[in-house]
Each structure stands twice: as structure tokens, then as C-alpha cells.
Write a protein that binds this DNA or RNA. Structure first.
Length: 736
DNA sequence: GATAATCGTATTTTT
DNA sequence: TACGATTATC
């Protein structure tokens, strides 16, 4: 290739980035640390391939979220023009299945069920099998089913492995669930992957065609792939053996959704002859932030050794700040944000990160009071709203008349006098005749046997359905169909009171979305639109902005960056989250669960460009009770250099650095937990009594008593002092 | 069939 | 504490 083109593609890249971008054929793993410019590497690598003569249509890029897919598509289009396929695993599989799933006995108009649809199926099955929903919780059963499917395990295998009654019932529900979905001509999210694997395994010609198109496969966020996705990736590259997997084991935070560390850790074994390139230069954070984050993640055993470095300056120290409770923590954060924005009119982008969603409440309260603009990154998508799901159910039913879940959802919405009893009878009749529920509803021979009132109501619905379905067949575009459904069902008229306005807005938005989709995908039709609606949950496309503070969980912060990050609630029980640790290492010191929590901590820290604040409180309201929490063990894993401790440490710190003690149970408390002692309010001063402070010297602290100074660090006007107090196992670092 | 009362539960959430 | 989901009641 001519040097000039090569130069254009590699301009501004560092050496390992260039190696990754210009790597030739064969399997390649790019281990891309946080902030190492991996999106750049991927887009430039695609451009490089195109320059080398690979037709864009033969390059397939896979990402994890729609947001990532559209962002990457945009950047690739900019560099090489359109033509490269960039999709999520699920969208890619859906596309393939629409064309090929007839082999497996499904109709190409299949519905994709989201979690709430699946949950309805499971609930119905539990009821049918008379399972106690208190013990056999539908949500838990569904999670279990889903993880079987992630691992490509059939109901039979699940039954074989069952080690308890609960497992056996779960396997039974799994089998029934699969049957029900097939009956409904529906696939859940896992099926999109699973059926693709099945298709590849059973129909070599289908696989061969896909392989032919896949001269180069690029998979981003490989650390978060589950087994099914890994198998698909392996199958796709089977012919040309060109796979570029990009990921960072230190950012694997989705084990609970089936992510499998082995996929990336054993990449070289899975793809023989693979090369590995590490991107270690960080372009995002200051040296202090990067040092703190690297130091912390180094406590993990299960990782690729990486040595992140930056050429950025030291920056300001990472600040660790303790508070009495969550309200104080929130006020402190608000105060800091005020300081940051007061100084230089245009404020930095600020992210407030927390482990659990409920922690957002305290910040919202304080920010509202203090007039700090904020936005909570809310993951409850637009398509989860009831009104949208209702209208969508009509649309699903039009596309796929066998979709019983959709039918049951809307047959009496708006209310039209079709109650549970009527539905039950129709259901039985449909079962007897072995026909889809909708066919029974539409069959006057069947409905005629019911009371005339019920028969009339059903006839009304049947007429409505025929009308809508007829309309849809002849309609020019999707927006019109959506509008027709809203109008002719009289949906809005049935909503009363204060919800009306909101519903109106939602539905208007839905129409707008349909119109937009129509313009962008003129040929996709109603089926394509419905698929998009289910798969794209982040339609409203949130992005960080500098006009307001972003409040978000650590999980949703992945892939984002902010000038200033407040990583809050870095506490025992919260940041290594108690359940995450106990669930996966009962009675132990943490194990894999702890390592994943530590990765989460690391992900949070590495979101920061310039300033990083880590905050904790001594107690926190959990499940309606005040629980003593105190500084997280992760805080003891920070380096001494470049970390500034502020406003420390009260009685919660007794566990500082130590393992989490089992709390005493009251003898009479039947359930888990028991009553916990309330933390006494302690004075918040952490200053050491005056006197000479130097290494080796003895000091007396008003709260911690006597101790020996280990080291002194001058930071600005203050001193950071590490002290070995007689009453604590681990040395504490305090600020003077 | 709609509303009120009660119950149970609270980690993370994309596709 | 606070919310959603299920159940009880009219």
C-alpha cells in the first residue's frame, strides 16, 4: 500500500495503536485499557482494511449497545463512507434470522419478547403448574432460564443438572417456556443468539454464507460476551479466520448477565495462533487518577497484566472524603460542584457515580434545593412505559397473529368487557382445537358458545383487529399504522385524569419515532419497526453534557468520561456490595465476586479526566434502617502518593482494612440480619492534637487515641499523615 | 372491573 | 423508607 494512505490512517496514533490498526490477517486480541483510544483503533482498523481492498460490505463490526453501534457507524462512515455493517450481536442475529429461521420452523414475522413479555409467560406457566410464586419467583426462574440459554444449555440439560426441587421446577418451566414461545412464534433476547447458533450448527450452508460475507469480524467489549456470543464469533470467523476482538478484562462487570471472563482470558487458546496487542497509553486521565486506579485494580488476581501510563501531568490529587451520613455526603458533593462551577463560568462535565440506584435520591434532593441542574441517567426506557407497550402490543399482534402475550395484554385494553372468565374459556377452546388464541377469538363458532354479552364483546374486538390488520396491509408507512391503532382503539379516550396529558405526549413521541424510522428505513416495514423498538432501548440517546451534572450507576457509566467524577458511597456493604460478595463466595473473603466489585470501582475511577473524588459515609439507610457502613476496603488499596484524605474517619472505620465482620444476631430474630447497632454520632474533627509530627513520633488523636507516625506528606498547606494507631489493625491516613 | 389495602422486597441492566 | 405487585373488597 502506498505510504501516503498508510500515513493518513496512522496519523496521530501511538506505536501500539498503529500495530493494532495495521495488523494483517488472522485472529487478534486488542487489550485496550481504559481511555486508551480503542474506538479510534477500531475505526482506523476498518479504514485500513478498506484501503487494503476489503469490500466494506465484507466487514462486520459487532458492539454491545445500540449507542456504541451507532457511534461507531458514524465514525466509520466518516472515514470510509457507508457500507460496513455495524450492529449489536442481537441486531445482527435478528437480521440473519428474519431470512433463515424458516429452517427451524418459525415464521419470519416472529416477535421479539423483552423481559417483561417473557416474565408474563413465566408467570402464566407458574400459575398453570400451580407453583407457589413466593418460593418459585417468576423473576428468579426467568433469570435462571436465561443463564441456561446464555450457556447454550437445553431444558433437558437443565433437568439433568438439577440438584434441588427448585432447579427441577426451573427446568420444567424452562421446557414449557420454550414450547410456549415457539407456539407464539416468539423469540426472547437469548433466543436471538441461541437460534443463530442452532442454525449455524444444523445448517452448514447457512453458516457458510455468513462466513463468506465475514471476511473481517471485529467485536468490541469482548470481555462482556457470553458463551453464545463467543460461539457465534468463533463460527463467523471460521473460514477467513480474521477476528479482531477488543476488550479489557479489567472492565468485565456483567457476570450476572452471563459475561464470561474466559472468552477473553483464553482467547489465544480459542483462536490458535492469535496475536495480542495491549494498548497501555491512557489519553484520558491525569497521572494521579490513573495511578490510583491502576494501584487498586492490581489487587485482583484474575487479570491480564497491564501497565497503563500517561503523558499527562500529575494533576490534582485524588480526594477521599468521609462523612457521617448520606445527606452530608450529598451536601459535600454539591458544595464541591458549586466551587468548581463558580470559579470559571463554563463548568466542567461532572458525573456523580454510585453503586446502587437508590443512592441517587439523596443527591437529587440536595441538587434540587441548591439549584444545581442535574439529570439522572434513567435506564427505564421509553418502550417500557405502559401506554407504549399497549400500543406496541397491537402492532405486534398485527405483525404476528400468533403472539398470545400481545393479545392477552390488549384484548381488554381499553376496557371492552372481556374479563378473565371469558378469556379463560376462549383459552381452553383454543387449546382443545389446537389453534392460536386469536383464531379462537375470531371464530364465531367458538365465541357463539359463550354468553351473548361475551360473544358480542369478542366480536367487537375481532372487528377492530380485522380493521387494523387490513389497514396495516394497505398502509403506505409505519407512522400511519401507529396513528390508526391509537385512533381506532380509542386508547387516549380511555385514559382519564392526570395521566392523560403524559400519555398524550408519550404517544405523540411514539408517532414521531415511527416517522423517523420510516424516513431512515423506508423498506423496513412494520416488522422492522417493531424489531427496532424492542432492541433499541436507549432511543432517547442520552449523552453527558456540561450544562448539568449526570447522576448514574457505575454500570451505566462504562464507556463514558467526565472532567470531574464523584465516586460516591465507597463503603462496606455498598461498594464491594454485600450481596455481590456473599452470593459468589459465601462465608469467604470475596473471591470472584469481590474482584468484580473491584473492577467496578476501577471502571468508576477511570471515568475521570481531571478530578476524582471518592466519598463515603459512616452509616446509610438500607432497607429502611440505618446501617453502619464506613469506608470500603477498596480505599485501603489506594496508593499513598497523590491521594488526599479529607474529613475522616469515624467509628465506622473499625472495620477499616479488615474483613467484614459478621454481625451479631439477636437470639429472638427469626430472619436474617437482626437488629443492628446504630452508630453513635461522633465529632467529625479528625485533626491531630498540635505537636511535632514526623515519622517515628508519637501522637495523640482525639478520636483514635495514641499512635505512631509512619509517614508525612505535605500537600499544599496541609499534611497527610499516615499513623499506626494502637487501637487499629491497619494504619490510617489522616489529614492535618 | 376498578379501587383500596396489604404484602414483600430492595444490586447492577443491555439486548 | 418506598415502591411495585398482588390480593381483597365493593
Amino acid at each position: 500500500m502506498p505510504e501516503t494512505i498508510k500515513n493518513k490512517i496512522t496519523a496521530g496514533l501511538n506505536e501500539s495503536q498503529i500495530r493494532a490498526v495495521t495488523f494483517g490477517d488472522g485472529p487478534l486480541l486488542v487489550v485496550a485499557g481504559a481511555g486508551s483510544g480503542k474506538t479510534r483503533v477500531i475505526t482506523h482498523r476498518v479504514a485500513y482494511m478498506v484501503q487494503r481492498g476489503v469490500p466494506p460490505g465484507r466487514i462486520l463490526g459487532i458492539t454491545f449497545t445500540n449507542k456504541a453501534a451507532s457511534e461507531m457507524a458514524r465514525r466509520v462512515d466518516e472515514m470510509v463512507g457507508a457500507g460496513v455493517t455495524i450492529k449489536t450481536f442481537h441486531a445482527f442475529c435478528a437480521m440473519l434470522l428474519r431470512r433463515r429461521i424458516h429452517h427451524l420452523g418459525y415464521d419470519p414475522s416472529f416477535t421479539i419478547y423483552d423481559r417483561s413479555d417473557s416474565l408474563r409467560v413465566v408467570r402464566r406457566l407458574c400459575k398453570a403448574l400451580n407453583l407457589d410464586p413466593q418460593y418459585y419467583k417468576p423473576g428468579d426462574l426467568l433469570d435462571t432460564i436465561s443463564s441456561y440459554k446464555d450457556r447454550l444449555e437445553s431444558p433437558q440439560e437443565a433437568a439433568g443438572k438439577a440438584a434441588s426441587d427448585w432447579d427441577e421446577q426451573a427446568a420444567r418451566i424452562y421446557a414449557a417456556y420454550e414450547e410456549k414461545l415457539a407456539e407464539n412464534n416468539a423469540l426472547d433476547f437469548d433466543d436471538l443468539l441461541l437460534k443463530t447458533v442452532q442454525l449455524f450448527r444444523e445448517y452448514p450452508d447457512v453458516l457458510a454464507r455468513s462466513q463468506d460475507y465475514c471476511r473481517h469480524l471485529m467485536v468490541d467489549e469482548y470481555q462482556d460476551t457470553n458463551l453464545a456470543q463467543h460461539v457465534i464469533a468463533r463460527a463467523l470467523q471460521g473460514k477467513h479466520r480474521n477476528i479482531t476482538a477488543v476488550g479489557d478484562p479489567d472492565q468485565m462487570i456483567y457476570t450476572w448477565r452471563g459475561a464470561r471472563m474466559a472468552n477473553i482470558m483464553e482467547f489465544e487458546k480459542e483462536f490458535p495462533g492469535a496475536s495480542v496487542i495491549s494498548l497501555e497509553r491512557n489519553y484520558r486521565s491525569t497521572a494521579n487518577i490513573l495511578r490510583a486506579a491502576s494501584h487498586a485494580i492490581n489487587f485482583n488476581e484474575l487479570r491480564y497484566e497491564k501497565n497503563l501510563y500517561t503523558k499527562a501531568g500529575e494533576g490534582r490529587p485524588v480526594v477521599v472524603a468521609g462523612h457521617y451520613g448520606a445527606p452530608e455526603e450529598a451536601s459535600w458533593v454539591a458544595e464541591k460542584i458549586r466551587e468548581l462551577t463558580d470559579k470559571n463560568g463554563a463548568g466542567p462535565s461532572v458525573g456523580v457515580l454510585y453503586r446502587t440506584k437508590y443512592q441517587s435520591g439523596e443527591f437529587e434532593r440536595v441538587f434540587a434545593k441548591e439549584d444545581i441542574p442535574y439529570q439522572v441517567v434513567d435506564t427505564t426506557g421509553f418502550f417500557d412505559r405502559k401506554a407504549i407497550k399497549d400500543i406496541a402490543a397491537y402492532l405486534h399482534l398485527i405483525v404476528n397473529p400468533r403472539d398470545e402475550i400481545a393479545l392477552r395484554r390488549i384484548i381488554n385494553v381499553p376496557t371492552r368487557g372481556i374479563g378473565a372468565v371469558t378469556l379463560d374459556r376462549i383459552g381452553h377452546a383454543a387449546n382443545q382445537a389446537d389453534i392460536p388464541l386469536l383464531d379462537a377469538v375470531m371464530d364465531t363458532k367458538i365465541t357463539g358458545k359463550l354468553s351473548s354479552r361475551a360473544a358480542g364483546a369478542l366480536a367487537g374486538f375481532a372487528a377492530l383487529y380485522s380493521e387494523l390488520s387490513e389497514y396495516s396491509r394497505n398502509a403506505e408507512n409505519v407512522r400511519d399504522v401507529v396513528e390508526a391503532v391509537i385512533e381506532r382503539t380509542g386508547y387516549l379516550a380511555s385514559i382519564s385524569g392526570d395521566e392523560k396529558e403524559e400519555t398524550e405526549e408519550l404517544l405523540a413521541y411514539f408517532k414521531g419515532f415511527a416517522e423517523q424510522h420510516q424516513n431512515q428505513n423506508p423498506d423496513a416495514g412494520l416488522t422492522g419497526f417493531m424489531e427496532q423498538s424492542v432492541l433499541a432501548s436507549d432511543v432517547d440517546g442520552w449523552r453527558p453534557d456540561t450544562d448539568s451534572v449526570s447522576l448514574l450507576t457505575l454500570h451505566s457509566a462504562k464507556g463514558l468520561e467526565f472532567d470531574v467524577v464523584f465516586l460516591t458511597g465507597v463503603e462496606n456493604y455498598i461498594l464491594p456490595h454485600l450481596r455481590a460478595v456473599e452470593e459468589r463466595d459465601p462465608g469467604g473473603d470475596g473471591g470472584e465476586g469481590l474482584e468484580e466489585e473491584r473492577r467496578l470501582f476501577h471502571v468508576g475511577m477511570t471515568r475521570a479526566r481531571k478530578l476524582l473524588f471518592l466519598t463515603y459515609a459512616s452509616e446509610r439507610m438500607i432497607k429502611g434502617r440505618f446501617e453502619p457502613t464506613g469506608p470500603s476496603r477498596f480505599l485501603t488499596e489506594l496508593p499513598h502518593e497523590g491521594v488526599f484524605w479529607e474529613g475522616l474517619v469515624d467509628s465506622g472505620s473499625r472495620r477499616f482494612g479488615g474483613r467484614v465482620k459478621k454481625r451479631k444476631m439477636r437470639p429472638d430474630s427469626g430472619k436474617t440480619g437482626g437488629k443492628r447497632a446504630r452508630v453513635k454520632k461522633t465529632p467529625k474533627s479528625s485533626h491531630i492534637a498540635p505537636g511535632d509530627i514526623e515519622p517515628g513520633g508519637k501522637i495523640e488523636h482525639p478520636q483514635y487515641g495514641e499512635g505512631t507516625v509512619i509517614s508525612v506528606n505535605n500537600i499544599g498547606k496541609k499534611k497527610q499523615v499516615k499513623v499506626d494507631f494502637d487501637s487499629y489493625e491497619e494504619p490510617l491516613t489522616i489529614l492535618q
